[in-house]
């Protein structure tokens, strides 16, 4: 556990709070990069996902490509792009946007798909136009799954942004690679802790958001909740006497 004490010491060392390698600066880089990537990816993926979800067209293509993207190794994509367009920040931006699009896309269209068809049918039957159906019915009801997609994209980006330090002088990943190179455990461990904390903070933030954006009416009577609770209290058949006693006790 000695290493952890050293890492903590490294984390509070004033020397690590000045200059180009300062912790706040690296944190801001990492976070800023994550946010920008998510915004770009969302701008591409959300409209497209809504279109797929609303029309049902292009769904099979989206599903297949999402599966294929999961198989593509992030490190490979990162190094390939970096080698093709040169070392610098552009490569991580491109690579990570590409990686962040599929989960957001999937969140957008599965959110629409998860809505009861009858609800949408009814909305159309009472006279909502297609745009109104999207804005007033599909978007609010599909929002929880969309946030879920953003959540996994964010985690993906934070993690891969750490790897991006392999091809660019940037973000918290720098500490990890510098520490690995010089066998400086305090630095790489301290950096790792920072990355993990950032990831967990984002995860918590998204978990909260996801809870908030579930429309209240949907939450109010969700039958799945009841079902989880009612999962059999007694799975085993016992003798009638024992069963009877249990009933007495439960009263």
């Amino acid at each position: 556990m000695n290493f952890f004490a050293e890492a903590l010491q490294w984390l509070v060392d004033p020397a690590n709070y000045v200059g180009l390698n300062a912790i706040p600066l690296r944190l801001a880089q990492h976070l800023g990069f994550t946010v920008v990537t998510l915004v770009i990816a969302s701008a591409i993926a959300i409209p497209l996902g809504f279109l797929i979800g609303h029309t049902g067209r292009g769904r099979s293509v989206a599903v297949a490509s999402a599966g294929a993207f999961r198989a593509i190794p992030t490190l490979g994509l990162l190094t390939l792009v970096a080698l093709s367009i040169g070392i610098g920040l552009n490569a991580p931006y491109i690579a990570l946007t590409v990686l962040a699009v599929p989960p957001i896309l999937a969140g957008a269209y599965t959110g629409f798909e998860a809505i009861d068809r009858r609800t949408i049918d009814a909305a159309r039957a009472v006279g909502m136009s297609e745009v109104q159906i999207v804005r007033q019915v599909e978007v609010p009801l599909g929002l929880p799954l969309l946030i879920g997609g953003l959540r996994s994209a964010a985690l993906q980006v934070v993690a891969t942004a750490t790897l991006a330090a392999y091809v660019a002088d940037f973000g918290l990943g720098r500490y990890l690679f510098a520490g690995l190179k010089t066998r400086d455990y305090a630095e790489m461990l301290g950096g790792s802790i920072l990355v993990i904390l950032m990831a967990l903070a984002l995860e918590g933030l998204f978990a909260l958001t996801q809870r908030f954006v579930v429309p209240r009416g949907v939450l109010a009577g969700r039958p799945t909740d009841i079902r989880t609770r009612s999962s059999r209290p007694r799975p085993v058949m016992e003798s009638a006497i024992e069963e009877g006693q249990k009933n007495v006790h439960s009263k």
């Binding site: 750490t162 990943g173 990890l176 990831a199």
Partner: peptide, 26 residues
């Protein structure tokens, strides 16, 4: 146990790979 377990695995999954590779051996 459901809430605890699902929260723990959720957080575990959120940990980026490279830092985990570095911390785990220690």
């Amino acid at each position: 146990s459901r809430g605890v377990i699902l929260t723990v695995v959720g957080l575990l999954y959120a940990i980026p790979s490279l830092p985990l590779f570095i911390i785990l051996p220690i």
